[in-house]
Nucleic acid binder design. Sequence first.
DNA 1: CTGAAAGCGCTTACAG
DNA 2: CTGAAAGCGCTTACAG
Lengths: 346, 346
Amino acid sequence: MKHIIEPDKSKGIRANTSKVTISDIANELGVSKTTVSRAISGKGRISKETVRRVMECIERYNYRPNSIAKSLANSKTYNIGVALPSDINLGNTPFFQNCLLGICEIAAAMDYDVIVTTVKENDIKILKRLVENHKVDGIILTRNLTNDLPIEYLKQREIPFVLVGSSEDDAIIQIDNNHKEACEKLTSLLIGEGLRKIALIAGDTNHMVNRYRCEGYFNGYHNQGLDVDQDLVYVDCSSSVYVEQAVINVLKKQAECIICSDDVICTNVLAVLNELGYSVPDDIKVASFYESIYLETHNPPITAIGVDVEELGTVAGKRLIELIEGSENRFKAVLGYEIHLRRSTQ
Amino acid sequence: MKHIIEPDKSKGIRANTSKVTISDIANELGVSKTTVSRAISGKGRISKETVRRVMECIERYNYRPNSIAKSLANSKTYNIGVALPSDINLGNTPFFQNCLLGICEIAAAMDYDVIVTTVKENDIKILKRLVENHKVDGIILTRNLTNDLPIEYLKQREIPFVLVGSSEDDAIIQIDNNHKEACEKLTSLLIGEGLRKIALIAGDTNHMVNRYRCEGYFNGYHNQGLDVDQDLVYVDCSSSVYVEQAVINVLKKQAECIICSDDVICTNVLAVLNELGYSVPDDIKVASFYESIYLETHNPPITAIGVDVEELGTVAGKRLIELIEGSENRFKAVLGYEIHLRRSTQ
DNA sequence: CTGAAAGCGCTTACAG
DNA sequence: CTGAAAGCGCTTACAG
């Protein structure tokens, strides 16, 4: 019988580096590997007493099944991949970070691990490498472009995946907040407060989420029987130069309020207003269709739509793992939102 | 011979889900798996011509070795773990996100993948699970506490790891900027500008980095032959309530300038000053020992120490992978920094 | 330069 | 309820 090194109880000294395998446990107990395996997995018929003995022994030797071997035998990796965009400055928005944290939390709870990978708008070779090396059982996408390479690729390869975001394609499992409705409501509320000239400064319309936000803004106007003044709408403001110009233009048009499509643009707008000597909310009001901590702690605090990004991550992770394990719930998960009316619009 | 499905050239139709294995390639070519394996890895003697034929065939069938099987055979996972703290609000600082991106970039280039895991100050069970399941070959730690559980654990288990940060323990491979020196220089510079009453508002001294920053501040004073006024120093300001109180106190003591230990505290300090009606830099100057995009775009822009966080990640990733692959470079990697003197201190 | 065979550490269909 | 054996898809020491 292969000799097992006694677990080292003394502190500070080199602990056993856990090279104990299922065979060691089996030999120690005088049973077969099959039995040990079954005791661990709970699959197949096995006596309570045997399970107890196996568990006790596992405990004693601090045995942990090698998940790589398990993966090979099962043709499953127990890993999920998360694709983070690396073509935008991630550091600018805590969204992806918080979403990732939510995913990690649920994954650990469901005994999966999370591999991060990056994608660019027109380059998904790093994602492909991950998938083709068979290192993940599925993928979570964290954004959706109008012509989305990762989606196309994953569908074609028939890799399980879910999208944190929305898409017109019902075949895709989606997890998202109802941005359109939230933006519509916020816009309506502001109109309800008597504002009429509400400008919209939005980011890249290549991102589907910005399209939904713009739609919400338009709907908000239409619901009140009003028309949008196109001179107050600036989309595709992809850099601070564009944002600055947009702000200057809408100020010229006497905008009473500026709604920003997200926190990054909003921070940018606030800096421009500050520099131009405009005071919020006295000279002009400001709101944002997406909020981050910086907007909340800004002085004055900024009216914005708040969503629970970690929840988005946990729900997405759960749905993906269920999908991998055979559940076929393909419904879109629609999560809640809050409208925070703060001093910036009062 | 096992039949190989021809790669599907037609678009839109289900692509071959890459179930082709090394045996398929070997059979197709009428050689042994050994030969195919050698052609791929380049290990052992093998004729140029055979390599060419193997490569051509691999290309034709879009064969990708199953990295799980490779892992099992080699007792290596080709994964590195990154431990992100989940007990602080990560969303508040882009540091970890940017560091992670740097790690992902170098890992992909070196043919490794990145598994993220989380650690809390007094709970590292998720990290332990990752390590004990044999899912990673090494770990990157992204912070260092005074009594750091992950470090203790990884040392004891003899798992390869590197620390993004500094430690007194020379046995630990460290990757860091010279925070102490940078903070010392910035403090000296401000004193050189004629400022005498420079307050310090710092975060949790349980984080080693804050200790180094404080030391730098003290050294800055001492270098100029001056003593620090203890009434101007507030450490362990772990919540905005403490920060607010600290600001009020140092204002009472007629501080001319406030240095913040990091971007989060600085954002907080700026909000408090704004609320109290103090204007920067006219009424009081402000600087930060760590900068993020928000400080840079703030109005006025904030004087701060800038470091390349992505570089920190790429260097850490590279060092860890080298360590895993047998290199024994245990020297501390000290990366550069920049002092950005901006309007907030002018 | 090439191959047969054992091995990495699990799982599971099959037989008892 | 339990076990021997084959298999997951690679690598590599050994023999030729």
